[in-house]
Design a protein around this nucleic acid. Structure first.
Ligand code: MN
Ligand code: MN
Ligand code: ZN
Ligand code: ZN
Lengths: 142, 142
DNA sequence: CCCTTATTGCAAATCATTTGCAAGTGAAAT
DNA sequence: ATTTCACTTGCAAATGATTTGCAATAAGGG
């Protein structure tokens, strides 16, 4: 949990209090491979005695200080992830819902290209890959 | 609206009825650059006399026949897009919310790489780019 | 134009998110 | 260790999205 401790230290520098609920939210984000919805965290923290409203408020605060990034996918419902990078991606099977890791993030070149084409700075991405896994492809064979 | 007519024809082949509501949903998806949430369509169709429940039910049906793809970003709240490809991507400024087109989709190589690494078939993607636009970067200069 | 039945609208149920407010608690100062 | 005070939290109510049952509607074939 080196990452978790680092993040905790960074947050302590920027916010006046470090509370139980705040730690829980940060732990969720550290543990997750994918960006999470607030609701996903409610589920993860079912036994942790953290009110839903508190999760939402902490996410907003953590976004304000730049430790967490929010991606609004549409009017209602955003996803949250640590601003700190170093992540990998995965792909989910549309048939059996299994999830397989793809490996380290390979979007750096794509982001550089976007920066060139558009002049945008601080380019970030959220990607979601789906497909059909080898097991689901040939239900009759083997 | 060549795309719209093509899609309409394809759906007619696979479903017994082509209704006002169904056309509206398909038109939304054809017109949008980005994947849409059901709720986004409710907004777009505010004047079209289509019940919200009907939008949800049509989306489910269209997914079943494979004309629409659903991407579940988390427990609640999915995004929908035409299965038909040929799309472009855009990037949204986190400061002013402006959106700039990036150009044709450049994810083909990435998808090929994923297919190699994981053995998955029919790989699809949903991407979301954010950054800071040139105007928002230097609020003081020029 | 009539029939059949897929599809819709409406209303109610369910569940996620937001907000106000009083109570609780982290951490700095004593 | 105790005190103190602003920051945070929990709770409850409000808001808004999504789902579901059911009777009414309408698309398309005959
Ligand atoms: Mn990445
Ligand atoms: Mn693309
Ligand atoms: Zn599978
Ligand atoms: Zn901007």
């Amino acid at each position: 949990m080196a990452i978790y401790d680092d993040i905790l230290a960074k947050v302590r520098e920027q916010l006046p209090r470090m509370t139980h609920a705040r730690k829980c939210v940060l732990r969720c984000l550290c543990e997750s491979e994918q960006p999470l919805a607030a609701n996903d965290m409610q589920v993860m923290l079912a036994d942790a005695d953290v009110d839903a409203a508190t999760i939402y408020r902490n996410l907003e605060t953590l976004c304000q200080i730049g430790v967490v990034h929010k991606v609004e996918m549409s009017a209602r419902g955003a996803l949250f992830a640590l601003a700190d990078n170093d992540h990998s991606h995965s792909i989910k099977c549309t048939e059996c819902n299994c999830r397989v890791d793809i490996g380290d993030c390979f979007m750096a070149e794509v982001e550089a290209l976007i920066q060139q084409r558009t002049g945008f700075d601080s380019v970030r991405h959220l990607v979601n890959f789906t497909g059909v896994c080898p097991q689901c492809r040939q239900p009759q064979q083997q």
